[in-house]
């Protein structure tokens, strides 16, 4: 059997915005959503001449260069779980290598993956940071091209098996930030786990495709308003 490979969109040796501490981040190529607000739309197609094929060993070699300076490794995308076999291989090697096993292993996912995939990598994955684009399914279809059923399912499943590190809400003023929607979202999140860590991401136009470039950006005062609304409905652990 051929050793699993990654289709890599990009590598960042130090990142301060992809999980706890300083992290090595592997951005994989290919996504199973097609979000209007995607700020890395070039990573959506599965096949593109711009991506690089890398063996797990090659990725490990790159991680070693960052190792003295990092808390861990985050796999992002595209959608990381589309390449779960290579993730399993990479994270297993990290966990079994005495010079690397202090590193934490995180996945940044859109949540569009089934239980089998999470089960296959759970034992070597320390945490998942999961995006909830919007709770309303019809709007979710509009914004991402797909249903959020599997996303909500992943949230409750990962929470149950203790692997859900945080849920991220990307909020676009006037698009998915109505009070009614945010209150429903708060109630939903509290029903999953009142202590769940929530990260509010402000929509920025940088990098997005033309269709989303007309949308207003979210600023600090928007975020403050969202934070208050969530908090008044029981969501207190907002990063």
């Amino acid at each position: 059997m051929k050793a699993p490979h990654f289709s890599v969109a990009d590598i960042i040796p130090f990142s301060w915005v992809d999980g706890p501490g300083n992290r090595f981040v592997l951005f994989l190529q290919g996504c199973n959503f097609n979000c209007l607000a995607c700020h890395n739309p070039q990573t959506i197609p599965v096949m593109t001449p711009r991506s690089t094929d890398m063996s797990v060993t090659e990725v490990i070699d790159r991680i070693r260069l960052s190792t003295p300076f990092i808390s861990g490794v985050t796999i992002s995308g595209g959608e990381a779980t589309l390449q779960h076999e290579a993730i399993l291989s990479l994270f297993s090697q990290i966990k079994n290598d005495p010079s690397l096993n202090h590193l934490t292993t995180f996945i940044d996912s859109n949540g569009n993956a089934d239980h089998d995939i999470w089960d296959s990598i759970a034992s070597v994955t320390d945490g998942v940071m999961l995006d909830l684009k919007v709770l309303d399914d019809a709007l979710h279809h509009e914004l991402t091209g797909g249903s959020n059923k599997s996303v909500l399912d992943s949230i409750s499943y990962l929470n149950k098996i203790g692997k859900l590190f945080e849920v991220r809400l990307l909020l676009v003023p006037g698009i998915n930030d109505s009070d009614e929607l945010l209150i429903r979202t708060s109630n939903y999140l509290v029903s999953i786990n009142p202590a769940l860590r929530i990260k509010l991401n402000a929509f920025k136009r940088h990098g997005v495709r033309a269709s989303a470039r007309q949308w207003p950006e979210a600023n600090e005062s928007h975020i403050e308003k969202y934070r208050k609304l969530l908090s008044s409905h029981g969501v207190h652990n907002v990063a």
Binding site: F14, W16, G21, N22, P68, F69, S71
Partner: peptide, 16 residues
């Protein structure tokens, strides 16, 4: 927003 990352860099700088 991520002071832990700076701690990582400091510790790494000394290790290297």
């Amino acid at each position: 927003k991520n002071p832990e990352a700076v701690v990582d860099v400091i510790k790494g700088a000394f290790k290297s």
